[in-house]
């Protein structure tokens, strides 16, 4: 009896330690696995050149995957990026999608040539050299298989939950902790204005219509001193006339509002009105207090 239990436990451990890429099928439909892919942070550039930097900015641990081939059909590739944690996988996903679907994993996006999704600490990309009915079907099959091969779910970074209840634009939330991505939706500064790094959590979200767009930035620092320092820098460079932190109207007619409290900093950019800027800011502050 003890032997059976030990055996079962060992089997479970093996399954748990297997990388999701190792659980993908060797064959399906007309396709067979022709190559396994395995890259580290140090050599991922050999696979995707400078594009590796985006993954590195989210703490890439490794990329494992495989390529499938079939006679007279486009190759299909599965790339499974293992990130430092689920927050990073979520961050890469928010960089990569411009609308949210939930067909696979914890958030996905599909189009004829590819599907991408995130789940647990993994960001998965399944793509074909070109779109055909067969390759699109193969992508769907493999997305389902990869989804099932990842057994756990990851946590969405807590800072995302602090965004106001008013719904941001679909696909309009981006999570990051590298200053390069500060300008993802809206140019703010061409340098690290807010001291954003691995120790910070940051999210930027779009609200309103294209004609009346507000951008909400929320950053959580490791301690209050870091928050105060970043807030002072922001106000000095962006709104020196703001005085006690009141909202101000900028030269282009849009409104800016800034706030800090505890470890958090919030700023509203490009708001069409004072009311909108303060409403978004207050809604965020309220969310943090309750």
């Amino acid at each position: 009896m003890l032997t059976i239990i030990t055996g079962l436990l060992m089997m479970c451990t093996t399954i748990q330690s297997q990388h999701p890429a190792e659980r993908l099928p060797e064959r399906f439909q007309s396709y067979r696995m022709s190559e396994r892919l395995n890259y580290t942070p140090d050599n991922l550039y050999e696979y995707i050149n400078g594009a590796a930097e985006m993954y590195l900015s989210y703490g890439l641990k490794g990329m494992y995957g495989c390529r499938y081939t079939a006679e007279n059909l486009p190759d299909v590739t599965v790339d499974i990026y293992e990130m430092a944690g689920s927050r990073d996988a979520f961050g890469v996903y928010t960089q990569s999608r411009d609308r949210d679907e939930y067909t696979y994993g914890q958030g996905s996006l599909s189009y004829p040539e590819a599907t991408l999704f995130w789940k647990d600490r993994y960001f998965v990309v399944i793509s074909a050299d070109r779109a055909t009915p067969e390759s699109t079907a193969a992508i769907g099959f493999l997305a389902d298989a990869a989804d099932k091969a990842i057994h756990r779910k990851g946590k969405i970074p807590g800072i995302v939950g602090l965004l106001p209840a008013e719904k941001p634009v679909d696909g309009g939330i981006l999570y990051f902790h590298h200053y390069i991505w500060l300008n993802a939706y809206f140019f703010i500064a061409d340098f690290d204005l807010l001291n954003i790094n691995e120790q910070t959590d940051a999210v930027v979200a779009k609200y309103g219509t294209p004609e009346q767009r507000s951008y909400l930035l929320l950053v959580e620092y490791p301690d209050e001193n870091a928050t105060v320092a970043a807030y002072r820098r922001l106000m000095q460079r962006y709104a020196p006339e703001s005085g006690n932190g009141q909202s101000i109207r900028l030269e282009d007619g849009t409104w800016f509002a800034g706030w800090h409290g505890g470890k958090r900093l919030c700023a509203i950019f490009n708001s069409p009105s004072l009311k909108e800027a303060e409403s978004l800011l207050q809604a965020t502050i309220s969310k943090m207090q309750f």
Binding site: I48, M54, Y55, L109, Y111, A114, V125, A131
Partner: peptide, 10 residues
């Protein structure tokens, strides 16, 4: 583009 290396004719 969406993910860094993805390509879509769209």
């Amino acid at each position: 583009h969406t993910a860094p290396t993805l390509f879509s004719e769209e």
